[in-house]
Design a protein around this nucleic acid. Structure first.
Length: 227
DNA sequence: CTACCGATTGACT
DNA sequence: GTCAATCGGTAGA
């Protein structure tokens, strides 16, 4: 049980985002431990990115983004929370939003926290993930490089190959919609929103390699989940 | 103080 | 697919 070190986060945000795919998010608390494989992330950049909360400067609420990399930035939205890992350098406000994980450990606890939702709905979406992992503002600024409360592990997990990573515009942002800064495990059912990358989508009427793979492989054993 | 908005979700057509 | 709930953060009076 080793958390990814600070060095992992002190790099280009897009690179960190892509390499977080496949890593394992772990939360330990009073009620027990839960863990999930990261399958969807978004990068928020410190320059030329008006969608980034830091674009209008440092405020009390986004201060964590301006702090040390390898810390958590947790912010509230619509009475819920979203969780980011801070990247690059202290004073350079950039982060990776963790949008979805595939539940691995602590499924009963996550299910209880999520009000009895199906496995598919436990952590598919940034606020659902936070509810399943009991992440809220108390974990803003939390150090992700120690295995105390919340961390990401898997230094030994190989980064996904380029052809396994889907790319798209970010979800829900009203600015900088054109930036392709959302990254996900291509075809994975635990991804929120579009889960087949544009690069794999059919341009004609033929079935794509992507959808076949999704149906036959990723959906295997998950009959009751998915649209 | 009030007004407006949103890196969303869940319910509904 | 569409849409309202609901509330903290922020800007402005």
């Amino acid at each position: 049980m080793t958390a990814l070190p600070s060095d992992f986060y002190c790099r280009d945000t897009i690179q960190v985002a892509r390499q977080l795919l496949g890593k394992v998010l772990v939360r330990r608390g009073r009620e027990g431990k839960v863990a999930g494989r990261i399958v969807e992330v978004e990068a928020y950049l410190h320059t030329d990115d008006p969608a980034c909360h830091a674009a209008r400067g440092c405020t009390r609420s986004n201060r964590a983004m301006f702090g040390r990399p390898g810390r958590a930035y947790v912010y509230p939205i619509h009475s819920r929370f979203c969780f980011n890992a801070v990247t690059e350098h202290t004073g350079i406000a950039s982060a990776v939003l963790i949008r979805a994980v595939e539940p691995l450990d602590g499924v009963p606890l996550m299910t209880r926290r999520r009000g009895g939702q199906t496995l598919w709905n436990l952590a598919r979406g940034p606020a659902r993930l936070c509810e399943a992992f009991d992440v809220d503002r108390r974990l803003d600024h939390c150090d992700l490089t120690t295995t105390k409360r919340l961390w990401i592990e898997g230094a030994d997990i190989r980064p996904l190959a380029n052809n396994e990573i889907g790319i798209s515009p970010r979800i829900g942002v009203s600015q900088a919609k054109e930036l392709m800064l959302r990254f996900f495990v291509d075809g994975c059912v635990f991804v929120s929103g579009p889960r087949i990358s544009a690069k794999n989508r059919p341009t004609d009427g033929k079935a794509s390699h992507g959808s076949a793979w999704r149906t036959d492989t990723t959906m295997g054993g998950l009959r009751s989940f998915g649209p």
